[in-house]
Amino acid sequence: MKLRILAISIAIFMLIAAGCSNSSNEGAKDKDGGNANGDTQTIKVAVQPWVGNGPFWIAEEKGIDEKHGIKIETVPFEQDSDMNAAFASDKVDVANLATHTTIRMKSNQDLDMKAIIFMDESHDADAILATKDIQSVKDFKGQKVAFEEGATSELLLQQALSEEGMTLDDVETVFMPAPQAGLSMISSDVKTAVTYAPYIKEVLDKKKDEGVHLLYTGNNSPGLISDIVVGKTKFFEDNPEAKESLRAVWDEALQYWRDHEEEGNEIVAKGSGITADELPSILSGLKFYNSEEQSEKVSSGELRKAAENIQKLMLEGGSMKNEINLDEIFDME
């Protein structure tokens, strides 16, 4: 009986020792950033059907993420509000947000977060369209203007108006999603609308003969419309390698797209819900940034200047409660 008890005791001791040994190795990182047993960290990335997210879709498709010790899981959302809520409540780890959205969330919700990648900047991919009888922003006064409230469209409109000493109070606002804003131009319900690609081309193709034209675009205010990768500060503190891994994945996937344009376009078109034929016209209005290009934008002060302007517009428009310290959210050098 005593021998049996002794044998059981020894067996239990050996099991505990083995468990402790495994625990001591759990989470150990290999040279590529994964676990010693080959596991990789899954990072949930909130995205919308927008081509600016292209490099992350390519990374998923081609396994570029796992080369850098992480597994990217893109989580799709249709509406800004749903994606923002998921990020704020930690349903996702990081989110690909518009720069102005990030600044507003910091002000209104006091989220402790860091922007780590400057993804892209809109040039002609966001625009204000107008009928032939409206030839300047001053002509907007008293007119119906269709745009999506709280989105990049509103920011672009605010910028255009502010340059003429005007505000949203000078126009008759018609709130609707950006795709519907474009359709409202096609149906002649409004004379002015703010939308983005590919809806810009759709409106111009159908209404150009009637004099509908581009009146103001992101090119008129560089850096105003841009996208960034944002994560909670605590997430990066708990996962110290995630920041550099995400940057490395972004850079390699973006370069893969540049080197394999046709294949990359197919992947990105699928992710954004359009055809590959529609993509070139959208991409012509966008500029993507890798880490080196991003660093130049930061060191030159361009990013800071654009962020200050964005904050000013939102404070004036009332969509932000309080001014924030912009240095607290940008971590891109």
Rank of each mutant, 00 (worst) to 15 (best):
F175D: 07
A151W: 05
K138G: 15
Q143N: 08
K144G: 12
E154G: 01
Q143D: 04
E149T: 10
M176I: 14
K144S: 15
G150M: 06
Q158N: 12
E164I: 05
E154S: 03
F140V: 02
K141C: 08
F175I: 13
A160C: 05
S136F: 13
L155I: 12
A160H: 01
A178P: 00
A178Y: 14
L156D: 00
T152P: 01
Q135R: 15
D133W: 08
G165I: 07
G165V: 05
Q135E: 15
A146V: 01
Q180H: 09
V174N: 05
D133C: 12
T173L: 10
L155N: 04
G142I: 15
G142C: 11
L168Q: 08
V171Y: 05
P179H: 08
T167Y: 04
A178G: 06
K138M: 12
E149Y: 08
V171R: 00
D170A: 09
E149M: 09
F175A: 11
A146Y: 00
M166Q: 07
S162C: 04
M166A: 07
P177Y: 12
Q135G: 15
E148T: 02
D169V: 01
D133N: 15
T173N: 07
K138H: 13
E148P: 00
E164K: 12
Q158E: 10
F175K: 07
G142V: 13
E163A: 11
S136Q: 04
I134Q: 01
L156A: 03
V145R: 00
E148W: 06
E154A: 04
V137R: 05
E164N: 09
E164H: 08
I134D: 01
S153I: 02
P179N: 09
K141A: 15
A146C: 06
A146Q: 00
E148M: 13
E164Q: 12
S162H: 10
F140A: 09
A151Q: 09
Q135A: 14
D169P: 01
D139L: 05
D139S: 14
T152A: 13
T173W: 02
F140W: 15
D170M: 06
F147S: 04
Q143V: 06
E163T: 12
T173R: 10
V174Y: 07
G150F: 09
V137T: 15
L161C: 04
P177S: 08
K138Y: 10
S136E: 11
G165K: 04
V137G: 14
M176T: 11
G142Q: 07
L156I: 02
V174W: 03
D139Y: 04
F175L: 13
S153W: 01
